[in-house]
């Protein structure tokens, strides 16, 4: 299969390789690290970041950026919690918030395209706006007490070797599967790669730039809102500062997953591994016990830097970038 050896998958393979390597290093250093249990926990603990990063992958593939992710997670979290205290069930409030996320993202996308403004600044405005709204909703941490929230956290599938696949991880994997389908098997997905690869050419090739851009940010908004719901149900509370700076972790996950920040090149599946690598690092440092949490950020930074350099190298040596 020549398709499997396709050069454009090299960054993806590199990501998977790094993930496996870190996992093995952890296994060699600490007892019990190399287990389904740790893997299941990493999946669950990082599910909301990976969900948000999955949405962000579309944005970055299209050549844009979304900074409103973290605030969206916070806003959705407090909204679900406050609606819970008003007697709503989590399912209804989740549906409402997903619609809100989709609409909010669509609006951002529409502004970006119709007014031709850099996505950075529009979504930065979204970041401030949504974070402000968080504090309008509540300034306190609000618990979620509905019985369906307990039901949600009780759903789990046993994995071999004492591992558990929790509901958050299941939601994450399902939403990832949907995203992979959208990216690679729909006209919309191909259009996203096209406008990220060369916007002007895409326009001449008949791609509807406006509709695609609006949809890209709508999808990202939807995934951010979903991440917010998962986060709220996982922690069973809403807190107005939740998700602060999480957009940057999401972007880091996307880049670690092999997607070029310039757009047009990358894979949604890579984002899963990108997010898992970040999760692995923090787990490793927690396992160590003697290192403080500053090391999580330091090693994430070093890894991110190393990866960008590796990408640069791969792109220039194997012609997988945008250049002709």
């Amino acid at each position: 299969m020549s398709a499997l050896l396709n050069k454009k998958y090299l960054p993806f393979y590199a990501t998977v390789l790094v993930f496996v390597a870190i996992f093995l290093i952890g296994g060699a250093t600490y007892r019990n690290f190399l287990s389904m249990r740790v893997l299941g926990n990493i999946l669950a603990d990082n599910s909301f970041i990976i969900i948000a990063a999955t949405g962000a992958t579309f944005v970055i593939l299209s050549g844009g950026i979304d900074l409103s992710i973290g605030s969206m997670i916070g806003f959705v979290g407090v909204s679900v919690a406050v609606l819970d205290s008003l007697g709503w069930d989590p399912l209804s409030s989740a549906i409402l918030m997903l619609i809100f996320g989709f609409a909010f993202g669509a609006f951002q996308g529409w502004v970006i395209d119709s007014l031709d403004i850099q996505p950075f600044i529009i979504t930065l405005a979204g970041l401030f706006l949504l974070r402000g709204l968080c504090f309008m909703v509540t300034v306190n941490a609000v618990p979620i007490t509905h019985e369906w929230a307990d039901l949600y956290s009780d759903i789990r599938i046993r994995l071999p070797g004492k591992g558990l696949l929790r509901s958050s991880a299941m939601v994450m994997l399902a939403s990832l599967a949907v995203a992979i389908f959208i990216a690679h098997f729909t006209r919309f997905g191909t259009n996203v790669y096209a406008i990220g690869g060369d916007r002007e050419s895409a326009r001449l090739m008949g791609v509807n730039i406006r509709r695609t851009t609006v949809m890209v940010y709508a999808v990202a908004g939807f995934y951010s809102a979903l991440a917010g719901v998962v986060y709220a149900l996982y922690t069973k509370s809403g807190y107005p500062l939740a998700g602060n700076t999480l957009e940057l972790s999401a972007i880091a996950s996307v880049v670690l997953g092999g997607t070029l920040l310039t757009g047009g090149v990358g894979m949604v599946a890579g984002t899963l591994f990108g997010g898992m690598i970040l999760g692995l690092i923090s787990t490793l440092i927690i396992f160590n016990g003697s290192l403080n949490s500053a090391w999580i950020l330091i090693s994430s930074g070093v890894l991110l830097f190393g990866f960008i350099v590796l990408h640069r190298f791969l792109v220039s040596s194997f012609d997988i970038g945008n250049g002709r």
């Binding site: 454009k8 191909t190 790669y193 096209a194 990220g196 690869g197 060369d198 002007e200 050419s201 895409a202 001449l204 090739m205 047009g264 090149v265 997988i320 970038g321 945008n322 250049g323 002709r324």
Partner: peptide, 11 residues
């Protein structure tokens, strides 16, 4: 050439 270099010939 107004095509997208990063995408496959097929796409």
């Amino acid at each position: 050439v107004n095509l997208i270099p990063a995408m496959s010939v097929l796409q």
